[in-house]
Design a protein around this nucleic acid. Structure first.
Length: 832
RNA sequence: GCCGAGGUGGCGGAAUUGGCAGACGCGCAAGCCUUAGGAGCUUGUGCCCAUCACAGGGCGUGCGGGUUCGAGUCCCGCUCUCGGCACCA
């Protein structure tokens, strides 16, 4: 030990050191790192590769505090992993197609391309002020033809495989944005447009879909990926798998049949009516002349209702009788066929069996129209009285022919088998998931590479002619309900790739979620003209090791991305099933409980904080305010605390001795304690960052700073010991506050760059405590505390506890009934 | 209605397998320093009682029960907040 070395070290003298000037330091290091290409990843070097992606932003114009909240902690983790020896690839790009650009064009007369590129330039500048370690050389901007060319290529591959198809159906239309939307982009019970909160309406339109439903079953399988339960649940519910049977019903006295789907085949003997969706094709055919007027009125009414504001829709279950009857295939009974809008065309077969006794909706409907209610599953202790509500629980089968007496769960399986045997129906799985509608009647997106020929119909553009370039000139942006490209002078006029005759080009563009479905493959080989992906790099670097982003994309981007990768697998581009091995969802920063958005005008800019306090302070504060996955309302009242801490670190590290006041040399014990705290901190900070617990990682660093300050005031430490502690502090600070850490590192004579150093080595022996505080409880209440060596025996600990002054007062005259000993924790003395 | 997450000081939030509740920070208070400070430093700070005493005591993690030597943590029943879904047969 070197504790005998004389000290001339003294308490601090803040006047002697340079003031912490965040702006100056940050600008200096940002340009240095950039000049030195510090964060350019060597993709050829794949030992210890780690592909870390954080969701790329939409270039709305300004990087707000919410972007920082998403990106800065990701950057911290990327930096940390590099120090742990990983070859981290941490790219960034822009989700550059989409509506806001076009809306800006309409509102302010600026071209969407200009608007987008200006915004990107500004946001890149802002991201640099954050000090993020993105590899900008692999940037991808999705509105670049060299990128969206491959969207078109993918589309054609899917078209060839039947995974992209065009179909006319009732789709969701946003009247404000004048375009259709995917089912996933219609939110909440009021069915609002995801972008502009306008209630959507239904329109019958011919649109392009991607057949995501072909992967429904596979998308339910999350094995092999480490994703938050929440996202898995959201996706699972969204896909909405249900098992049941589909069986055929004969229309009485007619040569027509229709299929129904049910998950409750055990209740089939209780059917007392059948219901078709008003849009069902049979409605017109089977309606009897005397019912026709009423039926047509109802059909007209429902069609109108879907087009008016859905908010006013009350869930009244009404419908009308068609006059026709159907035969229950299980017992030959005739049941009336009704139509009602509570039956949806878009799910199952668009027709149901009505079993009022065992389905709430059917019960309401039957009550309203005086239809029969047959109980076929007896509740416990039921003795034949009418039900006051539908009984939907399992029970004993009654009035069900040969299935009587079985419990309904068993009967479910038996009846399914029976139906299969008799050819009545078959076991079926239904999903709520719909195919992904990707057509958009807007300009700023990837043109769909299709040509319509009078002779040959729908013809894909040959791959060698890609990209179909989105024209930048000669476009009127006013939305008309048709794509602005429709009115372009040249764009719509094409030649049929087969016969060369004049043909019409598809003028709709693709949903921007197509762009984001594969962009991380693009980073590995941006804008390659020859091939969609670089197979070598994709093989070596993907799947992505860690993905971070907001949970709002759970059933949008994150579902589409999984689908896309599975398609890529089936095309032979990748050899695995899932794009992102690990996912972490950070929370959202709100203002007054509301999401930040430019349109709401409630965005908080980090720029003024960066200017006055520095990027390092903002980064640290964002990490510190709470658990990363929690988010919360923006409140800057504590940001001064983060700044003060960095200031204290600055002083602690750089304060030079001035030789005036002597303080004692540290004892062996003090040195040991200092090193112990250091190693405990190394352990804590590392495991916290690993677990994305940035708030407690910062807290641990603050505690370490406090411990060092106290140590420095009370004793002089030998250079080796003190230097090691300070260096560890800086190394651990480096991912969180990269600029100030680099500056102090340089001033201490450290090798450039601190960001290329290794994370300090954790030594469990050095971290181990020698003593612990034994808590002495009497009847479970804390009555005293004793310091004891960690290896104390149970007997000694118990004896010490029983002898503790304050505890003794509670034990006076009484014999302990029981003495509980928890090693290294406590002794609880139980008295009666 | 269904599914999911969550209720801890004045505030943001800490708390392996049940074992010192309130780490860290904000705010607040007192003191120091300063020509001044919305700067900096030191100390204190869950609530209540008590006290010369950093003697002590009572209460305390949304509410009500339970299990246990011991519960923020486990179990049962409520309640409130937030997020998602919403006639899915």
């Amino acid at each position: 030990m070197e504790t005998t070395i004389k000290s001339d070290r003294v308490t601090h003298s803040p006047n002697r050191i340079t003031k912490y000037n965040a702006q100056e330091i940050e600008m200096k290091w940002q340009s240095r790192w950039e000049a030195d290409k510090l964060y350019r990843t060597d993709l050829e070097q794949t030992d210890n590769k780690y592909y870390f992606v954080t969701m790329y932003p939409y270039p709305s114009g300004d990087l707000h505090i919410g972007h920082w909240y998403a990106m800065a902690p990701s950057d911290v983790k990327a930096r940390y992993l590099r120090m742990r020896g990983k070859n981290v690839f941490f790219p960034m790009g822009f989700d550059a197609f989409g509506l806001p650009a076009e809306n800006a064009a309409i509102k302010r007369g600026i071209h969407p391309n200009t608007w987008t590129l200006q915004n990107i330039a500004n946001m890149e500048r802002q991201m640099r002020t954050m000090g993020a370690s993105f590899d900008w050389e692999r940037e991808v901007i999705t509105c670049d033809p060299r990128y969206y060319k491959w969207n078109q290529w993918f589309f054609i591959q899917m078209f060839k495989r039947g995974l992209a198809y065009k179909k006319k159906q009732a789709v969701d239309w946003c009247p404000k944005d004048q375009t259709v939307l995917a089912r996933e982009q219609v939110v909440g019970p009021d069915r609002l447009c995801e972008r502009c909160d306008t209630p959507v309406i239904k329109k019958d339109l011919e649109q392009w879909f991607l057949k995501i439903t072909a992967y429904a079953e596979e998308l339910l399988d999350f094995s092999g990926i480490d994703w938050p339960e929440k996202v898995k649940t959201l996706q699972t519910n969204w896909i909405g798998r249900s098992e049941g049977v589909q069986f055929t019903m004969q229309v009485a006295d007619r040569d027509e049949t229709f299929d129904v789907f049910t998950t409750r085949q055990d209740t089939v003997f209780g059917m007392s009516f059948a219901v078709l969706a008003p849009e069902h094709h049979l409605v017109d055919l089977i309606t009897t002349p005397e019912r026709r007027a009423e039926v047509e009125d109802y059909v007209f009414k429902t069609r109108r209702e879907t087009e008016i504001d859905r908010m006013s829709t009350e869930k009244v279950r009404d419908g009308v009788f068609t006059g026709a009857y159907a035969i229950n295939p299980m017992n030959g009974e005739r049941v009336p066929i009704w139509i009602a809008d509570y039956v949806l065309t878009t799910y199952g077969t668009g027709a149901i069996m009505g079993v009022p006794a065992h389905d709430e909706r059917d019960f309401d409907f039957a009550k309203r129209y005086g239809l029969d209610i047959h109980v076929v599953i007896a509740p416990a202790n039921w003795n034949g009285e009418p039900l006051s509500a539908a009984y939907t629980e399992p029970g004993t089968m009654v009035n069900s022919g040969e299935f009587n007496g079985l419990d309904s769960e068993t009967a479910k399986a038996r009846i399914a088998d029976y139906m299969e045997e008799k050819g009545i129906g078959k076991s079926t799985v239904n999903y709520r998931l719909r195919d992904w509608l990707i057509s958009r009647q807007r300009y700023w997106g990837t043109p769909i590479p299709i040509v319509y020929c009078e002779e040959h119909g729908i013809v894909p553009v040959p791959e060698e002619e890609l990209p179909v370039v989105l024209p930048l000139e000669g476009v009127e942006f006013q939305p008309t309900g048709l794509s602005p490209l429709t009115y372009h002078e040249e764009f719509p006029y094409a030649k049929c790739p087969i016969d060369g005759n004049p043909a019409r080009r598809e003028t709709d563009t693709m949903d921007a979620f197509v762009d984001s479905s594969w962009y991380w493959y693009g980073y590995l080989d941006p804008y390659n003209a020859e091939r969609v992906i670089n197979p070598e790099l994709v093989k070596r670097w993907t799947p992505v090791d860690q993905y971070t982003g907001g949970v709002e994309h759970a059933v949008l981007h994150l579902l589409y991305a999984r689908f896309w990768t599975k398609v890529m697998r089936d095309i032979g581009l990748v050899q695995y099933d899932e794009p992102f091995l690990k996912l972490f969802n950070q929370g959202t920063i709100l203002t007054n409980g509301m999401r930040m958005s430019k349109s709401r005008g409630n965005v908080v800019s980090p720029d003024s904080y960066v200017e006055s306090l520095g990027a390092d302070t903002v980064r640290v504060y964002l990490m510190f305010i709470g658990p990363w996955d929690q988010g919360g309302d923006w409140d800057d009242s504590g940001i001064g605390g983060a700044h003060r801490w960095l200031q204290r670190v600055w002083t602690l590290v750089l304060d030079a001795p001035n030789g005036k006041e002597k303080i004692p040399a540290a004892t062996d014990e003090q040195v040991k304690i200092l090193r112990r705290v250091m190693h405990q901190t190394i352990q804590r900070v590392g495991s916290d960052i690993e677990a994305f617990k940035f708030n407690t990682a910062v807290a641990a660093l603050m505690e370490f700073t406090n411990a060092l300050s106290r140590a420095k005031e009370s004793a002089w430490y030998p250079n080796a010991v003190w230097g090691e502690a300070i260096r560890s502090l800086l190394l651990m600070l480096a991912p969180s506050a990269p600029h100030i850490a680099e500056e102090m590192w340089e001033r201490l004579g450290g090798t450039y760059s601190i960001h290329q150093q290794s994370w300090p080595q954790y030594d469990p022996n050095a971290a181990a405590e020698e003593k612990f505080t034994l808590v002495v409880q009497v009847n479970g209440k804390v009555r005293g505390k004793i310091e004891l060596p960690v290896d104390v025996s149970e007997e000694v600990a118990k004896a010490a506890a029983l002898n503790e002054e304050n505890a003794k007062r509670y034990l006076e005259g009484r014999t302990p009934a029981q003495v509980i000993y928890v090693p290294k924790k406590l002794v609880n003395v139980v008295v009666r």
